[in-house]
Write a protein that binds this DNA or RNA. Sequence first.
DNA 1: TCCTTATTGATAATAATTATCATTATCAGT
DNA 2: ACTGATAATGATAATTATTATCAATAAGGA
Lengths: 147, 147
Amino acid sequence: MEPSAKDHILSSWQDTLHSHGFRVTRPRQQVMEIITSSTTALTPQEIYHKSLEGERFPGIASVYRTLELLDKLGLIQQIHQPGGCHGIWPTVEGHNHCLICRNCGQMKIIEGNEDITGYIARIENQTGYRVDDHWLQFFGTCSGCLD
Amino acid sequence: MEPSAKDHILSSWQDTLHSHGFRVTRPRQQVMEIITSSTTALTPQEIYHKSLEGERFPGIASVYRTLELLDKLGLIQQIHQPGGCHGIWPTVEGHNHCLICRNCGQMKIIEGNEDITGYIARIENQTGYRVDDHWLQFFGTCSGCLD
DNA sequence: TCCTTATTGATAATAATTATCATTATCAGT
DNA sequence: ACTGATAATGATAATTATTATCAATAAGGA
C-alpha cells in the first residue's frame, strides 16, 4: 500500500524531532497522529480529549508540551477563527491561505496565488507602514454541508 | 474645541446603548473610553489593568460584561494576532482590513478595496466550497517603529 | 426627588494553562 | 540485545482567565 500524505507528514515530523535531538516518544506520536489525521483545526483541549479514546493516552501536560515543541520547530501553526481561537494545523510549505467551513469546521489549505502586491504598495504609501506579511482566510460552506 | 473622532464614537455608542434600553453606567463608560482611546487592540485583561489607573474603576466582571454587551451590539470586534489572540477593537463600517505593527502593536484599519473576486471564484471551483466572507490582515512595521 | 429594576462589586466556581518533581522510557554506545 | 545517562512523562499543584451568583447600588423615567 502506498504511504498516505498523512504518513509522509508523520515520518517527516519524526525525522525533524530526531535531527534536533528530541526523542520520538509515544505521547508525542499520539499527539502528532491526531493532528495529522484531523480534517479540522483542533484546540489543545480537543486534541487531549481525542487522545482519551485510545487505550493509553498522554497526560494533558504532555499534550501542551508537544504542541509547544511542534510549534517551536515550525511544524504546526495556529488557525484563528471568529468563534474559537487557536486551532492547531500542520504548517504547509510556501505561501498559502486557509478556507474554513463555518458549519462543520472542515479546513482546506489553498495555494496563495492571488496578486495583492499593488494593494500592499498602496497601503504602504498611505500609512507609512512597511508590510512584510499578511493573512488571508476564507469562510464559507464546504461541499458536504451544502447538500 | 471640535469633537474628536473618539468622542464621536463614544457618543454614538452611548446612543446605541440607550436606544436598546441599556443604561449608560460609569463602568461601561470607563471601558468604552479605554477601548476608543487605544491605538492597539486590547485584551479584556489589558482593558481591566488600564482601568486600574483611574481613581474609581470597574470590577473585572463588569469589564467582561461590558465587552459581551458591546460585542452583542456589534460595536466591537475581535482582532486575532499570531502572538496574542482576541484583542478588542471598535467595529468599522463597511469592508475593511487591519494592519498591525509587530513591534508596538499599533493598529490601523484600512479600506478594503482589493479585488479578489476572481481569486474567490477560482477557489470555489477548485474546492466546491461556497465562500461568503474573508479576513485579510497585514503585519509589518509602523512608521514610528521604522525610525 | 422617588421608585423600579438593571447593573454592579465581591467573590465563589469553573476552565485553561503552566510549573514542579519523582518516576519512566528513549536511544546512543557498547 | 543490553545498559546507562538523561530527556521526557504523569500526577498534581499553582497560576491565570473567564463565568456565575447574589445582596447592594445607582441609572433614569415618572
